[in-house]
C-alpha cells in the first residue's frame, strides 16, 4: 500500500483531494491510479476520462517520475497530489530528481520513421490526453502538473 494516503474535500466540498506518497516502485502505480480515478468517478467525470485520459496520463507521469526523475532508485519516493473539482482535475506528480525538459523530450511518435519505435509515446500521450501539461520547479525535486477539464 502507499506509504501515506490522505483523502479529503475542500471546505466548500467542491473539490476532492488526494495526497499520496509512494515508494519509488512501478508496482504502486495501479493503486494510485485507482485512488484518483475513484474520486473522479464520485465527481461524475465522463466515461472516456475515467477509462482513458486519467488512468493513462497519470500512469505515464508516475512512470516518468519513478524511472526517469528518480532514476529507478528504490530509496526515493514519489508524491501525488490530486484536486478533483467539478470543473477540472489538477494532478501533480513530484519526484526527488532533477527533472527533465518536457519540450526537449518531445518527439512525434506518429511519423512514419517513429511509428515502429518501442519508446517515445509517454509524454506524447500525456499531452494528448490532458488539456495542459507543465513542469514546476520544486524545492527538492521536480513536479509535473497536468490539468483536465471535466467533460
Amino acid at each position: 500500500m502507499p506509504r501515506t494516503e490522505r483523502h479529503g474535500s475542500s471546505p466548500d466540498g467542491r473539490v476532492r483531494v488526494v495526497d499520496v506518497e509512494i515508494p519509488n516502485d512501478v508496482r504502486y502505480i495501479e493503486k494510485v491510479v485507482e485512488l484518483v480515478r475513484r474520486e473522479c468517478q464520485v465527481m461524475a467525470y465522463g466515461h472516456r476520462q475515467l477509462m482513458l485520459n486519467v488512468p493513462v496520463a497519470l500512469t505515464e507521469a508516475l512512470s516518468n517520475a519513478i524511472l526517469r526523475g528518480n532514476g529507478d532508485d528504490p530509496a526515493k519516493h514519489v508524491h501525488v497530489h490530486a484536486e478533483v473539482g467539478a470543473e477540472r482535475l489538477v494532478l501533480e506528480v513530484g519526484d526527488e530528481g532533477t527533472g527533465f525538459d518536457l519540450d526537449a523530450s518531445l518527439i512525434d511518435p506518429t511519423t512514419p520513421e517513429n511509428l515502429g519505435r518501442e519508446d517515445g509515446r509517454g509524454l506524447f500521450l500525456m499531452r494528448k490526453l490532458m488539456d495542459r501539461v507543465e513542469r514546476l520547479e520544486a524545492a527538492h525535486g521536480s513536479v509535473v502538473r497536468m490539468t483536465l477539464h471535466r467533460e
Binding site: M51, L52, P55, V56, T59, E60, S63, G116, R117, E118, D119, G120, R121, G122, F124, L125
Partner: peptide, 11 residues
C-alpha cells in the same frame, strides 16, 4: 487500459 510501455511491448 494500456500505457506507452504496453504499446511499446506490442510494437
Amino acid at each position: 487500459y494500456i500505457d506507452s510501455s504496453g504499446l511499446g511491448v506490442l510494437v
